[in-house]
């Protein structure tokens, strides 16, 4: 079974690059461009991992994360948060609210993939 990775970010170029990396791993990418879309997609498709940007229009990543954790359908999906800032308080805030991992922008795509594959339940990559 191929794993599905949901990317929620408002930057189209990021989707292209992450999409390329994800395809390399034989995973499938689901795209969402804001927090609300991410929630909807997460409930509908139940992806293996969610990569979520902290700052997005409509609903920011932190609010979306709270919602995800509140909903029993999505509560157990691992979430990796992305953020443009790297202040400690942000990291603490995100992890407090149930994020499983954290990466600050700009990031290395290889590192992203490594972290995501660690989050995939039982899905170590070859």
């Amino acid at each position: 079974m191929t794993h599905q990775v949901l990317l929620a970010d408002d930057d189209p170029l990021l989707h292209r690059v992450v999409g390329f990396k994800v395809a390399q791993q034989q995973w499938q990418l689901i795209s969402a461009y804001n927090g609300a879309e991410a929630l909807e997609q997460a409930r509908l498709k139940r992806p293996s991992v969610i990569i979520m940007d902290g700052m997005m229009p409509v609903m920011d990543g932190f609010a979306a994360l709270r919602e995800l954790r509140r909903d029993p359908i999505t509560a157990s999906i691992p979430v990796l948060m992305l953020s443009a800032r790297n202040r400690d308080t942000d990291v603490v805030g995100a992890l407090d609210q149930g994020a499983n991992d954290y990466l600050t922008k700009p990031f290395s795509p290889a590192e992203l993939v490594a972290r995501v594959s660690r989050l995939i339940p039982g899905g170590a990559v070859a």
Binding site: L13, L14, V17, F107, S108, P109, A110, E111
Partner: peptide
Amino acid sequence: RELADRFRGQY
């Protein structure tokens, strides 16, 4: 430039 803006490391 856009790529450099967003990614670091090997890229």
